[in-house]
Write a protein that binds this DNA or RNA. Sequence first.
DNA 1: GGTCGGACATGATGGCCGTCATATCCTCGG
DNA 2: CCGAGGATATGACGGCCATCATGTCCGACC
Lengths: 243, 243
Amino acid sequence: MSGNDQAQRVAEAVRTVPMFRGLAPGAQSHIAGLATLRDFRRGEHLWHEGDPPESFTIVVRGRVKVVKEGESSDVIYELFGEGEPVGAIAVYNFMPYPAAAVALEPTTLLVLPRRDWFELLDRNPEFARAIIRELTRLVLGLTRKLDEMRGQTVETRIAQLFLTLAERIGRDTKEGTELPIQLTRQEVADLVGTTVESAIRVLSRWGREGVLLTGEKRFVIPSRARLRELAGAGGESTRGPLA
Amino acid sequence: MSGNDQAQRVAEAVRTVPMFRGLAPGAQSHIAGLATLRDFRRGEHLWHEGDPPESFTIVVRGRVKVVKEGESSDVIYELFGEGEPVGAIAVYNFMPYPAAAVALEPTTLLVLPRRDWFELLDRNPEFARAIIRELTRLVLGLTRKLDEMRGQTVETRIAQLFLTLAERIGRDTKEGTELPIQLTRQEVADLVGTTVESAIRVLSRWGREGVLLTGEKRFVIPSRARLRELAGAGGESTRGPLA
DNA sequence: GGTCGGACATGATGGCCGTCATATCCTCGG
DNA sequence: CCGAGGATATGACGGCCATCATGTCCGACC
């Protein structure tokens, strides 16, 4: 609980964040002097839609969903993992957060007050480039999500979701590809734009058929090729036998 | 046809682009010396998916759709109008264009070679800010589109599309709100993620009911309030009268 | 230990809409 | 002047999936 421990944790966090990794040690400790850490439990809100963004924030531990919470259903826009800045758009434009952020796991956030962040931005042009890179990633992720949500059947969309997750956070084990992420069926539904029941139907069938296994805080994909078939053959119009 | 005329047209274009408007006249004419103009007819491709981005481009006349062209159907990601940079992401990261761009109307493009553009970026930090602003606009537009595509009925989504268009490019006339944009039913379908037939069914019914009129290269919305009703009441569970 | 809430699961039903087929109108080119 | 192609339009049919209902399991909390 000593301030020293805290300071060391912050310094450690700053060192490991990709965005700051290339900086000189002096610059790093300067940033560490301005930043703080905040911890969240699973399910806890980092912020709500409409909140004013007081700080620039980076995920240093855990995972976060950015979610538009509707009265009857939610939409998950994007998932953020370790090392990624979250909510960058709102902070930069000083606009109310357009969506809420919720911790999917026990999560630690590196928090840099808005004012300090803008001073750093002025002094280090490469930070602007980091922001542009981050926004690029966002745009590409969203366009891919648009592709996925269109037309296709629910099964296809869920297959594509897990293939994407496999690429981003999958680890190969002897059972197959392991996804160390905790997602409820509701969250899977929100990610592909369907209802809980439909998500459940697909996932429980896949469990029986051995396509995708749900475990404690993880999923396992025995055969990615199998998933890829399901992802490809979705709503494709029964193309004539000769077409 | 004289080079002088060309040079004057370019200079004029540079002056009118929002991004360059704040610059000193000297800087503007410097840019004008590096840039060129290219004209496109309706339906012509500005580029195809996968092309390498050789230049930074801004729409100075007309309108452009950015579209993912699938074998069986297309998805329109975004529309770009006068003054807006198009394809900024691909140029900045020097990645192949992730989608094609097609002129919706006779269109003129201000073209700045990649190399020159990056030199300008290095010298003018405010250009980086302009890019960030543009990407922010993109992200917000895409998230809104995700909202719209989810769940709702086709009629609801088309209503939301035209409300959005009304905000962005609508002009009030005595007949109602006029949208000076030429869109085929196919393009409307691609914008909201449905089929031509469904789009036609909705639009022709709206024509009969006087909700939205299709004219020569334009649409007319007699009553926006009427459209707003249709946009709100889509798949929504009966929201109480007081909510 | 009992209760309450949340996550997971499964069946029945109805409607939206994607697909296919057909028809009209208009433009363009030979 | 006629045929081809494209945009618009309308009807029939069928399947996916949202909705509603019901039930089980399990951990949390008193």
